[in-house]
Design a protein around this nucleic acid. Structure first.
Lengths: 365, 365
DNA sequence: CTGTTAGCGCGTTCAT
DNA sequence: ATGAACGCGCTAACAG
C-alpha cells in the first residue's frame, strides 16, 4: 500500500505487458504490431497479458518514432454551415476507411484563426491537410505555403487559392451561377438582384470597380458573381450596381440590403442568393414586404437544404454534391500521403439546379 | 549537394536551434517555453535563431514528456445536426480561450462508432472528453466507464447516461416537451401526434409497453416523450399509441409515419416534433395533404433554426441555448482537468418556447 | 543563469 | 524467435 492512494492506475505500457507475459518489450511490440515473427505460444501469452491489463497503445509515442500520425487536419471556414458539415462527414468517413482520423478546426471565415489552425495542426504533426480557406484573393496565404513547403500534403476544398499549386476539389461556381441567373432571364426577368456579392466597404459604382473588387474577393464569391455577370452579358442586359449587395455576411445585413433593393423605384423581379444565410435573409425581406413568390418575385439560391423543399413555395436551389466533394478530397489527400508526386490536380464536381417553385415568369410591368 | 535531393528540409528541432544559437537545448526550451530564467542577451539570440530557422514546436514530443496534450476530445452524435454544430462552436471557442484545441469525432448515432471514437481519443491522450452519447438506456457504456476509470475527465452534453457518475450539461427536455404540448392542449387540441418517439421494431400498443420501450430509449428521446405524456395526463387526455411514431430516424420515415397518422379516421389536429428532421418530415406530410396550418393542423417542434422564421406560417419552436450548453460544458471539463475533484454536477440549461404562427386553436370538429 | 542528463512510450535495428 | 539498446523531440531535475 502506497501512502498516496492512486485513484487512477497509470495506463499500462508495453513494458508492463512484457513483464506480465515474461518476455521482452520487442516481442510485445512485434505481436501487437503484427510484424516480424513470433512463436504462436509467445504470441498467445502476450495477447493474454495485454488483454488482462487492458493495454491501449499510446499513439503519441508511436507517432514519435514513426513520424506518422495517421491523422488528417481539416480546416473549414464554418462547421456550422450545413454545406461544410456535409462535406466533413464524407471526409471523415473516407479517411476512417483507410485508418485515418480527422482533427477538425473551424475558422469562422477568419484568416487569423485559419493561421492559428494551420499552426496547431502542423504542430500536431498531421499527415495531411484539407482546407477550405477563408483567404480572399490577394490575401497573405504564407501560412498555407509554409505547410506545403514543409512537405505536408494539402488539398483545397470548395475554395481555390490562386498562388497555391496544390490539389483542389471544387464545383464550377461560375457556371452554376450563370445557369441559375440565365434561367431567370429566360423567364423574362430583366432586373435580377444578387445577395451576397463580395463584402466591401465602398460599393462598386460601375462594372470596372466591380471587377476590381472582384479581384480581391473570396474565390467562390468572385466566381459566383462572375457567373451572374456572364448571364447578364449573354442576354445583353445592363449591370446595375444597385442590385448587388456588398454587406457583411450575416442574415440581418442581407435582410436589410435586400429590403433596400425591393424598395427601389425600379425594383428587381428576381433574386439570386449565393449562400444559405443570404437566402434566409432574402426570404425575410420578401415576407416583410408581403410579396408573392414567384408571382411578384422569383428566387433561386445556392445550397439546397431539406427545408427548402417544404417552404411555401418550395425553393429552387443549386445543389452541391457534398458527399462527392468530401470523398474526393479525402481520397486525394490519402493518395498524396501515400507518396503520389504527380502534378497538382483540380477536381471539378458537378452541381445541379433543382427546379422547384420559387422562380417563375417575370411579372408584366 | 547530397545525392538524393531533399525536397522538404526536415523541420528544425530544438537542438538545431540550440546549435545555431550556440547554447544548450535546455536554454532554448526555457526561452521558447517561457519558463525558468534566461538572460536577455541569450534569449534574444535564441529567439533570432528560432525565427531564422522557422522553428515550430512538435507538440507530440512535448506531450510525451509532460503527459499533457492541451487537447479536448469531443464526441458528438451528429456534427451535421445544426444543434450539435452550434454547441461545438461554443465548446471550441471556450477551449481555445484557455489554450486548448478540440478533436471532434462524429458517431452518426452509432454506438459502435462511439466506442471507436473514445478509443482513438484516449490513444491520442486527450486531456478531457465531452460526449453526446448515442447510447440508449441499458446499452453497454463500458467504453465511457473505462475512460472515466482511466482518469480522463468527462462531461456529458445534451444526453445523460444513467450509470455514469460524471458532470453533465443538458436542458430539461421533459419540461420543455410538457410545456409545448401543454400549450397545444390549452388551445383546445385533444389529438396530438408525436414524431419522433423512440425507435423500436415493435410499436407499443398500450401505455405500459410504451413505458417499457421508454426505459431503453435514448435519454433525450425518453424525456421528451415523458413530457408529452405528462401534458396529456395533466389534462386528463387519453394516450393513443397510434399517435406516436416508432420509425427509424430519417426524414422519409417521418414523412410516411406522419402521413399515416393524418390519414387516420380520427386524425391528430396537432403535431409535436422532437427533432429538426422530424419537423421537416411532418411539414412534408402536411404539405402533401394540403392541410392549412394552423387552421387545420398545428405544429410545434424541437430546435429552432433560422429558416423556421421564414416558413409560411413561421414555425413555433423550442430553442435550445447551444452557445450556453457548449460554453458550460467546456468550462466544466477545463475545471476538472485543472484538478477539481468535487462531486459530479448536473447543469440544467434553460430552453425557450418561441411562439410564432404554426400553432393555433384546434379546429372545431 | 546555464548546460548535462535522464526519461516519456514506442518502433526498430542489431545481435544472439 | 527473441532481447538489448538506441533514438524520435522535448521537458524537467540536477549540477554547476
Amino acid at each position: 500500500m502506497s501512502t498516496e492512494r492512486q485513484r487512477h492506475p497509470a495506463a499500462p505500457t508495453i513494458s508492463e505487458v512484457a513483464a506480465a507475459a515474461g518476455v521482452g518489450r520487442a516481442t510485445v511490440a512485434r505481436t501487437l504490431g503484427n510484424y516480424g515473427s513470433v512463436s504462436d505460444v509467445t504470441r498467445a501469452r502476450v495477447l493474454l497479458a495485454a488483454e488482462r491489463l487492458g493495454y491501449q497503445p499510446n499513439t503519441l509515442a508511436r507517432s514519435m518514432t514513426t513520424g506518422i500520425t495517421k491523422t488528417l487536419g481539416i480546416v473549414l471556414a464554418d462547421v456550422g454551415n450545413p454545406f461544410f458539415s456535409g462535406v466533413l462527414r464524407a471526409i471523415a468517413e473516407t479517411a476512417k476507411g483507410s485508418g485515418y482520423d480527422a482533427i477538425v478546426l473551424s475558422t469562422n471565415e477568419n484568416l487569423e484563426l485559419e493561421r492559428d489552425a494551420i499552426r496547431v495542426l502542423l504542430a500536431k504533426q498531421v499527415d495531411g491537410l484539407v482546407v477550405a480557406s477563408a483567404a480572399g484573393r490577394g490575401d497573405d496565404v504564407s501560412h498555407l505555403a509554409a505547410a506545403v513547403d514543409r512537405g505536408t500534403p494539402m488539398v483545397l476544398i470548395d475554395r481555390l487559392v490562386d498562388s497555391l499549386e496544390v490539389d483542389s476539389v471544387v464545383i464550377d461556381n461560375r457556371d452554376a451561377a450563370r445557369r441559375a441567373v440565365g434561367s431567370m432571364i429566360a423567364q423574362g426577368h430583366r432586373r435580377i438582384a444578387l445577395a451576397w456579392g463580395p463584402v466591401t466597404l465602398s460599393p462598386a459604382t460601375d462594372l470596372d470597380q466591380m471587377h476590381r473588387i472582384l479581384d480581391r474577393a473570396l474565390w467562390s464569391d468572385g466566381e459566383r458573381l462572375r457567373g451572374y455577370l456572364d448571364a447578364l452579358e449573354e442576354a445583353g442586359l445592363p449591370f446595375d450596381t444597385a442590385l448587388v449587395t456588398h454587406v457583411l455576411k450575416n442574415e440581418d445585413q442581407a435582410t436589410r440590403a435586400v429590403n433596400g433593393m425591393l424598395a427601389l423605384a425600379d425594383p428587381p423581379t428576381a433574386i439570386f442568393t449565393t449562400e444559405t444565410e443570404a437566402t434566409v435573409g432574402a426570404l425575410r425581406a420578401i415576407r416583410s414586404r408581403n410579396l408573392r413568390m414567384p408571382a411578384e418575385i422569383s428566387l433561386i439560391g445556392f445550397d439546397d437544404s431539406p427545408w427548402a423543399a417544404v417552404m411555401d413555395p418550395p425553393l429552387t436551389m443549386i445543389e452541391q454534391p457534398m458527399r462527392h466533394l468530401g470523398a474526393t478530397a479525402a481520397a486525394q489527400i490519402l493518395r498524396r500521403i501515400d507518396g503520389d508526386e504527380s502534378p497538382a490536380e483540380r477536381h471539378i464536381a458537378p452541381s445541379r439546379l433543382i427546379s422547384r417553385s420559387s422562380d417563375g415568369p417575370a411579372p408584366r410591368a
